[in-house]
Design a protein around this nucleic acid. Structure first.
Lengths: 227, 227
DNA sequence: ACAAATTTAGACAGGCTTGTCCAATTCGTC
DNA sequence: GACGAATTGGACAAGCCTGTCTAAATTTGT
C-alpha cells in the first residue's frame, strides 16, 4: 500500500496512476463512442481528472488514441504469450487439455477487457491508422500464430496429432474454438463462462476429429455433450 | 435503359435513383468514418446531390443511418438465401462441391460491398442500436444458420456426412472456411480470389476430416495443396 | 514546513456540424 | 410548351468540441 494505488477511491492518486487512469478511461470511451464520437471532457470525467490533465499527459486526442492502442496491444500480447506458456506440450488427456487451454486463451486474452477493446478499436479505426495497426499485426497475430503453430507441430512430431500444415492448423484451431462466439463478439458482448466452455469443447472435438490420431476404433464422436 | 439508371454518369437520375444513391454513399461514409465522424455534406457530395436533398429524403442523420442498416441487412439476407439455393444437396464430389459453395458464399455474401459494410456497422455501432441489430440478428444469422444446419443434416441423412449436432457443424463450417481471412476482415480489407479459395479449400478439408465419411482407408490427408 | 511541481476549474476563441429556411433553377409530365 | 414537384446552393442559428490560457488550490519531495 506504499503508493496507495488502490482502485478508484477518493484518496488522491499519484502522477503515474493518473496517467493510466486516463488511458483506461480513454480506451473505454473510444470503444463505446468511436474515435470521432469520443469526447475529451467525458474521458476526463470518467478518469476522475480535469480536462487539462488529459492534455498535460498526452498532448492531443490523436496522441491519446495512439497511446491507448499501444497500451492495449502490449498488454494483450503479454497475456497471450503468458497463456501460451500453459500450452499442453505433454498432454495427459489431449482433448481435456486442449479444451482447458482454449478456455484460458479465451478468458485471459480474447474475452477480457483488453482483448475486447483492442479488437473493437482495430475493427473500427484500423483503416485510419495503417502503420499503427500494421505494427500490431506483426507483433500480435504474426508472432501469435507462428508460436501456436510451433506448439502444434511439436504435438504432431510427438505423435499426438496428424497435421499437414501447422500454420493452417493453428488458425483453424482458433477459428473452431471461437466458432460459437462470433455473434457475441460482433455485437461487443461478453460470452458467459459456459458459452466459452461449450464453444471450446465443440471446437476441440472437431479439431481432433480432423487432426487427432484415431485411437478408439469405435464410433468416433458420441453426441456432443453441450447442445 | 428505360429510366437511364446507369451507374453514376452525368445524365440526371430519377427521384428513386437519388434515394438509393444517397443510401449507398451514406453506407460508404458511415463505414469509413463511423457514425459520429460521418458528415452529411460529405455524404451528399459523394452521392452527387445537395445536402438539402439528403434531408428531404431521410429526415435526419439517425434515420438515414437506420435506413442504411436496413437496406444492407435486406440485401445481404437476399444474397445469402440466393446462395443457399446453390448448396450441393446431391454432391458428386463432396469436397469440390463444398469448396465451390464456400467460395460462392464468401464472394457473394461476405466479401462483397454489402457484406463488408454491414459487418463493420454492426461491429462499430451495434451496441448503440440494440433493437435494430437484434432485428438483424434474428433475420440474418438466426435464419442463416438454421438453414445451413438443415442442409448439413440432409447430407448426413443421405450418408455423405457423419454429424453430431448440425447447428454446431454449420457454425464450424463457416468458421473454418473463413479461418484464414479473419485478419483481413478485421482490418476491413478485401481478400483476393486466391486467398478465398485457399481458405475455403483448407477449411473444407478439415471439415471433412472431422465430419466426412471415411472412405479411403489410406492416410487421411495428404499435404495441403495450398500452403 | 516550505518550495516546486502538478492539478483544477473555468473562461475562451476558433472551427466544424447539424438541421432549417428560402429563392432560383431544373426536372418530369401532361 | 406549361405547370407542379423536386432539386439546388447558399445563408443561417445553435450547439458542440478541441485545444489554450489563467489564477488559484493542491500535492509532493525534502
Amino acid at each position: 500500500m506504499k503508493h496507495g494505488v488502490s482502485p478508484d477511491t477518493f484518496p488522491p492518486r499519484s502522477h503515474e496512476a493518473k496517467r493510466v487512469s486516463v488511458v483506461d478511461a480513454a480506451a473505454s470511451v473510444f470503444c463505446r463512442e468511436g474515435y470521432a464520437g469520443a469526447n475529451i471532457d467525458l474521458i476526463a470525467a470518467e478518469a476522475g481528472v480535469s480536462r487539462q490533465t488529459v492534455y498535460n499527459h498526452h498532448g492531443d486526442k490523436e496522441k491519446l488514441f495512439v497511446a491507448v492502442v499501444r497500451d492495449l496491444t502490449e498488454r494483450c500480447n503479454a497475456g497471450i504469450f503468458a497463456t501460451f506458456a500453459t500450452f499442453p506440450d505433454q498432454p495427459t488427456n489431449l482433448e481435456a487439455d486442449l479444451v482447458a487451454f482454449a478456455v484460458r486463451m479465451n478468458r485471459n486474452c480474447i474475452c477480457n477487457r483488453d482483448g475486447r477493446f483492442l479488437r473493437k478499436l482495430i475493427q473500427a479505426e484500423g483503416e485510419r491508422y495503417p502503420e499503427l495497426f500494421a505494427e500490431w499485426r506483426e507483433q500480435g497475430p504474426g508472432r501469435t500464430w507462428s508460436a501456436l503453430a510451433a506448439r502444434f507441430a511439436r504435438l504432431a512430431f510427438a505423435g499426438h496429432l496428424s497435421i499437414g500444415d501447422p500454420d493452417v492448423a493453428a488458425r483453424q484451431f482458433l477459428a473452431l474454438v471461437n466458432a460459437e462466439l462470433q455473434i457475441t463478439f460482433m455485437l461487443g458482448g461478453v460470452p458467459t463462462e459456459e458459452e466459452v466452455l461449450r464453444s471450446a469443447t465443440n471446437g476441440v472435438r472437431t479439431f481432433l476429429g480432423a487432426f487427432g490420431r484415431k485411437k478408439s476404433p469405435a464410433g468416433k464422436q458420441a453426441a456432443l455433450v453441450h447442445a
